[in-house]
Amino acid sequence: MKAFTDLEVWQRSRVLRNDISQLTKSFPSEEKYRLSDQIIRSSRSVGNNIAEGHGRFHYIDSSRFLITARGSLIETLDHLIVALDEKYITEEIFNKFKGDYETCLRMLNGYITYLRNQQPQKNG
């Protein structure tokens, strides 16, 4: 069994997490314990849940953590929309992150589908 760090979806979420971390350094200081904290937490949660799901024994358990990772990814996008609305980021920066989000979401959905297809089928 490969390590979770070998999973392309985890690697992609790591890049997104690191990019978000850099991005928040440009946010106003009054957002440090509000938007910055929230978007950092949600972006970290994506990779954390992929890793935890990878360590689970059963496919069903693993896919539950991936669904949680997907929720955290979607939350991250919502925080980016807030940053756009508050004019902390430009439309161009938002679109770059939205593209990264969409890539990560496709990968997560593919991995969830893969795991679900690994479950033994019930007869009858």
Rank of each mutant, 00 (worst) to 15 (best):
M1R: 12
M1T: 11
K2C: 13
A3L: 09
T5P: 08
D6F: 06
L7Q: 03
L7M: 10
E8H: 02
V9I: 09
W10G: 02
Q11M: 04
R12C: 10
R12A: 09
R14M: 06
L16P: 00
R17T: 01
R17I: 00
N18E: 12
I20S: 06
S21V: 00
S21D: 08
L23E: 00
T24S: 09
K25I: 00
E30A: 06
K32P: 11
Y33K: 11
R34F: 11
L35Y: 02
D37Y: 11
D37P: 00
Q38M: 04
R41N: 03
S42C: 10
S45Q: 03
V46P: 01
V46L: 14
G47V: 00
N48P: 03
A51G: 07
A51D: 14
A51H: 08
H54Q: 06
Y59E: 15
S63C: 15
S63V: 07
S63W: 03
R64G: 13
F65E: 05
T68Q: 15
A69T: 01
R70T: 08
G71R: 02
E75P: 04
T76N: 07
D78R: 07
V82I: 14
V82M: 09
L84Y: 05
L84E: 05
D85R: 04
D85L: 04
K87D: 12
K87A: 15
I89W: 02
T90W: 07
T90P: 00
E91M: 08
E92S: 14
I93L: 13
F94K: 01
N95H: 14
N95G: 13
N95K: 14
K98T: 04
K98N: 13
G99Y: 11
D100M: 10
D100H: 04
E102M: 15
T103Y: 14
R106D: 13
R106N: 14
M107V: 11
L108A: 07
N109A: 15
N109H: 07
G110C: 09
G110V: 10
G110E: 03
Y111Q: 08
L115H: 02
L115N: 02
L115K: 01
R116L: 14
Q118W: 03
Q118N: 08
Q118H: 06
P120Y: 10
P120G: 15
K122W: 12
N123E: 12
N123S: 15
G124V: 15
G124C: 15
